[in-house]
């Protein structure tokens, strides 16, 4: 059977569940609430008003008319193919996962950038998180949180977080030394230096990380459907079990359209700066 390494991992999961079960429950409830409210907001308007709102938001962010109309068209195609509800579930999972990942990853990245050298612990952890096959996260996620969207989101957060940590760290390290001298020479506190000098200069790099994080979340959301995450991933998993090419392709196309939309939006956010 399993070697001591596997047995250790198993014991660890048991211990966590036994002693921290209550914490996990709270965690799950909170995430559930967030997921539900985001999903509720997304499905509250009918598709057509939603699409108009999306075009407007896209105009505000990208300031490109043609691109915004194309984004509207992409979402109209999703609705026309009949995947609107699934798409909204997937979208809310991606948004929540990205939000949680960024909230954890940016402070971690800042922390990692503060030492002389790259923080070896954080670096190893990131390597581990990113290269461990994504399926593996599903196992403890299911044990801790049962089936459904929440364990899917948690597995997604773990899988999609590393690029944000890396690129935040890198972005801050690449701030020209003269800029740090400027902050110090004018008597900035550490916090002022971080928020007024380092983070704004590192912002393009951080946004590149967020962009990657969103893309990874989308790819993970499909995998998470295997534990009942639902959404477009659920449609794809069903199509696989019934060998339904048509549904598989349509749902896959919907994922691609969402991915391209989110990519263009975050990318132009990065180009236009804050």
């Amino acid at each position: 059977m399993a070697s001591p390494v596997g047995i250790f991992a198993e014991e660890l999961v048991d211990v966590i569940q036994y002693y921290l079960g209550w914490l996990l429950t709270i965690f799950k409830d909170v995430l559930d609430l967030i997921l539900e409210s985001v999903g509720g907001i997304l499905t509250f308007p009918d598709p057509v008003p939603f699409i108009f709102a999306l075009i407007l938001i896209s105009l505000l962010i990208t300031k490109r008319l043609v691109l915004s109309l194309l984004i509207g068209a992409a979402f109209y195609i999703i609705e026309w193919m009949g995947y609107w509800d699934s798409a909204m579930v997937t979208l809310s999972m991606v948004l929540v996962a990205t939000l949680v990942a960024v909230l954890i990853a940016v402070p971690l990245g800042i922390r990692a950038s503060s030492g002389e050298k790259a923080n070896p612990v954080i670096k190893a952890l990131m390597d581990f998180m990113q290269t461990m096959p994504a399926f593996v996260y599903l196992i403890p996620a299911v044990i801790f949180f049962g089936l459904g969207a929440v364990p899917g989101v948690i597995a997604t957060v773990i899988f999609a977080m590393p690029p944000v940590v890396r690129l935040t760290n890198l972005g801050i390290r690449q701030v020209p030394p003269e800029m740090n001298e400027v902050a110090d020479a004018f008597g900035s506190t550490g916090w002022q230096k971080l928020t007024k000098v380092q983070l704004p200069i590192a912002l393009p790099s951080i946004m590149a990380g967020v962009n990657q994080c969103i893309m990874l979340s989308l790819s993970m959301v499909v995998i998470a459907a295997m534990i009942g995450g639902g959404g477009l991933g659920g449609d794809i998993v069903n199509a696989l079990s019934t060998i339904d090419v048509a549904v598989g392709f349509e749902a896959g196309l919907a994922v691609v359209l969402i991915a391209m939309t989110l990519d263009r939006l975050t990318q132009s956010f990065r180009e236009n700066g804050a």
């Binding site: 003269e178 800029m179 001298e181 400027v182 020479a185 008597g187 007024k196 704004p200």
Partner: peptide, 15 residues
């Protein structure tokens, strides 16, 4: 440093 002195840099150091 805030009130008594300040500095001008070779490569301008503008944010």
């Amino acid at each position: 440093r805030r009130e008594k002195m300040s500095m001008v840099f070779q490569n301008f150091g503008l944010l």
